[in-house]
Design a protein around this nucleic acid. Structure first.
Lengths: 342, 342
DNA sequence: TTGTAGGCGTTATCAT
DNA sequence: ATGATAACGCCTACAA
């Protein structure tokens, strides 16, 4: 900017005024400054600007996995929303790893992001401490945190799973396997609750063997499903509480020569683009990803612009069961013998 | 930092020295500073630091689509690599839109990122100008740019498609439809070239009607495939030059009552996690996504650390044909009548 | 309309 | 070992 001022024969204050349109600059100066900028190839330094202004026009976003289509879609929407508002988004993936999240949020805060959107990970206490230390607004996405009272956008996970499991029950299934991530977060907990309540509502007893936990990855989905399928009295249906794990479950079934939905009915959380083009067409619980991303962005934007109520807003959206053909009605005698093909 | 210095009864210079371990600080001062930091809840301001140091320890990454698993996997690897090296990654999605890319890169540059990784978009000239204006190292991913001589990691797209099409030909297919994005980038061009050369090598003539272009999205894949399938002499096989479009193509076939691979064989570029669990199990060209991301990160990291040769390094990796069951041998009489089911 | 000067939070140089 | 002080590039009173 100094160079520009010099080249244009004016002071840097004038250049700044011109750049920001903050006060009137004479046509001649304008002219000269414009050419000077072009000639020097000047680029405004946003870092210096941020230092002075105390705002970076950047928000931080942390998610557990970037390869999970669910988060990917949300990221996409959020990015677009902030783009429109003139904000940049700094994205980090924690890979469901507490240590990463800690460090990443610290990093984000160090960099003076104006706000934080987080699909969190790890135990409540640590996270609470982190949020309390932040001096910027935080919006929770997908996963809540006990004791942290900030804006949030989540799904009614309990009810969504309740509906899915009830559907399976209505098809006649009695032994329904459930695979899920094991991390102690609200989402996981609520989904498990939905499973239990659906069984209970149907007067079915809960067999602990039928709930198999792992991490959130395909590999653990495979192992969890394997344990289920090797049970002497194996389930006739499997519900996966997340998307990556169902892929592993399908692979386990394939390796065991079990067909879906003929031998086992399968359904899972989170819809995906090609759910209705490949066979079996997966029955899923679709989350309103666009709404989630859009609302989360709005919540934060409003706070950043100071036009938000002081008390936290907690949005809870509803999931939608997408019935396709991966679940078949239960027929008598099914699932009792193993291997069935023998 | 002022507060800390005051609370510890030392000067800010000492605090800074302590923080950076740049010079020896007496044990007593160390003690006092440590407690002062704890008490004041001090957080180092990375913005001010960047301003002074001229480095942000942040790199920019722009990709066309975040919902495309191919890019998603690369992003994941790149993030991890820079994480290990102590860098943050700022991710932007251009949505295959030139205007966005321009603005995003400008933004990134304004923010003084130390380097840029870009899977580019738009015409060569504009992009060249952008890169020339950058005063930081740039690494091209997936897509090259004429006239821009910087480090790059790409795939031998021509050869990969050549192999895939040749495989289809070896199965007996003669009329092979090709759907692709239309944007004028190296990747698209090379893939088209692979298609043409494979036909030529087999002594087959090129029917322009068989090459249908659209954007990169599912919707256009649907429309492109529809045009192909409505041809009086419709193809017996379809190759999609990208992943999202093949989903659309499959939907088109479904809507027309055409089965894969019985009626039409299908293959596409870019492998995906569940390619071998759902039916049809898609035959794909797998890119070495991990290697691409890892290498790109290394290339940039080396430059940032000043241990890179001055001349640009151009890495070209090889794709791998993953043969599954979405392509069937051609049988006489197939594909000639329409609708076949009639 | 334009210029001068102080300061945002760091780091680095140079005295002490 | 420590402290004063000058940048880094920008914005903003305030003065001219």
């Amino acid at each position: 900017m100094n160079d520009v001022a010099e080249a244009a024969g004016v002071s840097i204050a004038t250049v700044s005024a011109f750049l920001n349109g903050t006060s009137n600059v004479s046509p001649q100066s304008t002219q000269r400054i414009e050419t000077a900028i072009r000639e020097t190839g000047y680029k405004r330094n946003a870092i210096a600007r941020s230092l002075k202004m105390g705002t970076t026009h950047t928000v931080g976003l942390t998610i557990p996995h970037i390869t999970n289509p669910f988060f990917t879609q949300i990221v996409s929407v959020i990015q677009q929303a902030f783009d429109r508002a003139g904000y940049a988004v700094m994205l980090f993936c924690t890979d469901e790893h507490l240590h990463n999240q800690d460090e990443q949020i610290r990093l984000l805060l160090d960099r003076m992001v104006d706000g934080l959107l987080v699909a969190r990970v790890g135990d409540d206490a640590t996270f609470k401490q982190l949020v309390d230390g932040a001096r910027v607004p935080v919006v929770l996405i997908d996963r809540l945190c006990q004791g942290v009272d900030v804006d949030s956008v989540t799904l009614d996970n309990r009810q969504a799973v309740f509906e899915a499991i009830s559907y399976l029950i209505s098809l006649g299934h009695r032994r329904i396997g459930y695979i899920s991530g094991i991390v102690d977060i609200s989402t996981i907990h609520d989904r498990g609750e939905g499973y239990r309540q659906a069984l209970q509502a149907a007067g079915l007893s809960l067999d602990p063997e039928l709930m198999q936990l792992g991490d959130f990855h395909e590999g653990d989905g495979y192992r969890a499903a394997m344990r289920l399928l090797m049970l002497p009295d194996r389930p006739t249906a499997i519900f996966s509480a997340n998307n990556p794990m169902v892929v592993g479950a399908m692979k386990a079934m394939r390796d065991l020569g079990l067909k879906c939905p003929d031998d086992i009915s399968v359904a899972c959380f989170d819809d995906f683009a090609w759910a209705d083009v490949f066979e079996p067409q997966m029955t899923t619980v679709a989350q309103p990803v666009e709404a989630i991303g859009e609302q989360a962005a709005q919540l934060l934007l409003e706070r950043l612009q100071g036009r938000a109520p002081s008390e936290p807003r907690r949005l809870v959206l509803k999931g939608r069961l997408m019935v396709r053909n991966s679940c078949a009605p239960m027929t008598p005698g099914r699932g009792t013998a193993w291997p069935r093909s023998a």
